[in-house]
Design a protein around this nucleic acid. Structure first.
Ligand SMILES: [Mn+2]
Ligand SMILES: [Mn+2]
Ligand SMILES: [Zn+2]
Ligand SMILES: [Zn+2]
Lengths: 154, 154
DNA sequence: ATCCGAATTGAAAAGGATTTTCAGTTAGAT
DNA sequence: ATCTAACTGAAAATCCTTTTCAATTCGGAT
């Protein structure tokens, strides 16, 4: 079992990489660590401003770039125009189950695409090096909520 | 074997849907039908202008929207900021093998993710409804090119 | 072949996301 | 406490995409 990603662990890693731990960065980190949803830079900024209204959107962008470079956050792939980020919880290769209702993301690590990759290589001559895989749907919490509403109506 | 997607077939379908077949739209269609690469609106515009320099970028965007609505083109999911489109060759649900060297896209239809979806539903309670799956790598042509260069050096 | 009206067009402006610039501020080593 | 490179916010610049609007064009009706 790998250790969970805590604020302390992240700040230690950033400090180790030579980054300063500013008031602004702490606020951005706090927002990201305490959320299970994927969030756009703008949404993160909105939440950060509740902690510290003086933090600018540009600083959010800059912090997200650092965190991406350090492998501490993931981007989720959606059809939206703006990017969307999330704390990287599993350390290695993994994928996301994204709730279309609430934005919650559940991670999974075992995608088992080797067989498919091998078949495609044989059929098309294509040598695969990487892949994107994201599932969209409804998380268990939102299913419960929907079920409860259904009951109330009865 | 489903019939191949020809320019005639597409224009017939658009006309049937009540769209006018303008000079500009014909140019955009020609560019898309004759390419196996995914292309950004800007790249498409560039190619369209070689056929007809008077066509504006805005018209390319508008035509892409119509073609998307009619299910005649696909978007590919990459890390780039701008969108990228491609003629939709398989009719139904399918995915892409995208060459990182030349941009060529090879389609495949049989993703076989049902088992994985079932396992994830059992493990996480998540009910999946849709997914994105794209492979990145090197197409057979670019592998040959690379191999030839390697030989020449010897 | 000509006419007509709605659909379509290009140019320009607006919009939205992200990046760059720059002068002032600050974290953290000494 | 001092110092300096790293960091910051505001504003401007860049991209990509959409909207607006007056002029043009397609294609059905004459
Ligand atoms: Mn992730
Ligand atoms: Mn496709
Ligand atoms: Zn949910
Ligand atoms: Zn290639």
């Amino acid at each position: 079992m790998s250790p969970s990603i805590t604020l302390e662990r992240i700040t230690a890693l950033l400090r180790q990489k030579g980054y300063k731990l500013t008031r602004q960065r702490r606020a951005v980190l706090q927002v990201i660590v305490t959320s299970h949803d994927h969030m756009t830079p703008s949404k993160i900024h909105e939440k950060v401003q509740k902690i510290d209204p003086s933090v600018g959107l540009v600083t959010v962008y800059r912090t997200l770039e650092i965190l991406t470079g350090a492998g501490l956050i993931c981007r989720v792939h959606t059809d939206r125009t703006s990017r969307s980020y999330l704390l990287r919880r599993p350390h290695g290769h993994h994928h996301h189950l994204i709730c279309s209702d609430c934005g919650r993301v559940v991670d999974f690590t075992d995608c088992n695409l080797h067989r498919l990759e091998k078949r495609l290589a044989a059929e098309t001559g294509f040598r695969t090096e990487d892949h994107i895989l994201e599932f969209f749907g409804c998380c268990s919490l939102c299913q419960e909520t929907a079920a409860t509403k259904e009951e109330d109506r009865a």
